[in-house]
């Protein structure tokens, strides 16, 4: 008892102080992550937006820090950027839909049908591909999509020829890469859905999926789609590997940063996916999907 009663060393005194001052406690808990959020995330984002209004001096290659709408005018006037944006959004939507369609039954099985033991193994199985290198997986798909690859070997007996390299291959590969990001939120969402709710719905009628499962799981679908959509929208490597001769927004950014050293223009291009995501989130909010969270 005596050891507890004695006001101990500095650690104990600090603990006491924190106990008496909840504000200090909160500050200690949050200051580091907040600093990280503000400086690293928001700061980088702000710098990106600012840079988008600058230009690069053609002669010296230096960035000219002077407000200028030239980059955005270029983006607007050149039809090619609109085409690329639409294509990128189309790919992201396609990937999200494909992932949703594949992930939903899988997540449902994991959360509601499989035994707890099988559930654990399935979660591990879903997570395992995330440990493998992105490039290895993308290249594996490249080999499969080859004219002499597995895909054609399977399809040829049916008289069908695989799509080869191009946007379909890009969508398939991205859908594969991001599938765990759709399955896991869905799994978490469906797991929270009580079994009794399914029983209750079965008890009262037969339209369980549309009226009960889907509305309850919808926020999880949205969470998953935010991942698959944004990850697809920003990707530029997969399309390089299996996309044949197509390009997406990410490639334009990459080319302008890496090859052309035109950082301001790259920043201007990079605002496109940010804007698309903001629109997406606002649209999601409007559907009311976030109200039931």
């Amino acid at each position: 008892m005596s050891t507890i009663a004695t006001p101990g060393g500095p650690v104990r005194r600090l603990a006491g102080l924190l106990y008496r001052r909840p504000y200090l406690r909160l500050a200690g808990l949050l200051s580091a992550p907040l600093l990280w959020l503000v400086v690293a995330y928001l700061g980088a984002l702000a710098a990106l937006f600012a840079a988008a209004f600058w230009t690069t001096d053609v002669f010296t290659g230096e960035v000219v820090r002077q407000f200028n709408l030239g980059n955005f005018q270029e983006l607007w006037s050149q039809g090619v950027y609109r085409t690329i944006t639409l294509r990128s959004v189309g790919v992201a939507v396609a990937v999200t839909v494909v992932d949703g369609v594949i992930a939903f039954p899988m997540a449902f099985y994991m959360a509601k049908i499989a035994s707890p033991r099988a559930q654990r193994w399935l979660v591990i199985a879903v997570l395992t591909p995330l440990w493998a290198s992105y490039l290895v997986k993308a290249y594996a798909w490249r080999v499969m999509f080859s004219g002499t690859g597995v895909l054609n070997w399977v399809l040829d007996p049916f008289g069908i020829h695989g799509p080869g390299y191009g946007l379909p291959a890009t969508v398939v590969t991205l859908a594969y890469l991001w599938l765990p990001y759709m399955i896991l939120p869905l799994y978490a969402g469906l797991e929270r859905l009580p079994n009794s709710l399914l029983d209750a719905s079965g008890d009262l009628g037969a339209r369980t999926f549309r009226t009960v499962i889907w509305p309850v799981a919808f926020p999880a679908v949205i969470a998953g789609s935010i991942f698959t959509f944004s990850l697809s929208l920003g990707d530029y490597i997969t399309v390089k590997i299996v996309g044949g001769k197509s390009q997406l927004i990410g490639n334009v950014v990459y080319d302008n940063v890496g090859a052309a050293n035109n950082l301001p223009f790259a920043a201007a291009v990079a605002t496109i996916p940010v804007a698309v995501m903001v629109i997406y989130l606002v649209a999601v909010r409007r559907t009311g999907a976030l109200d039931n969270l």
Partner: peptide
Amino acid sequence: LALVAVAAVSLLAAGCGGKSGGSHHGG
């Protein structure tokens, strides 16, 4: 969820514009 979304968007932005330049070309 909003935080997750912000993080996702920021990551995306960082991924796109992450490599800082500032070097020269031309001459």
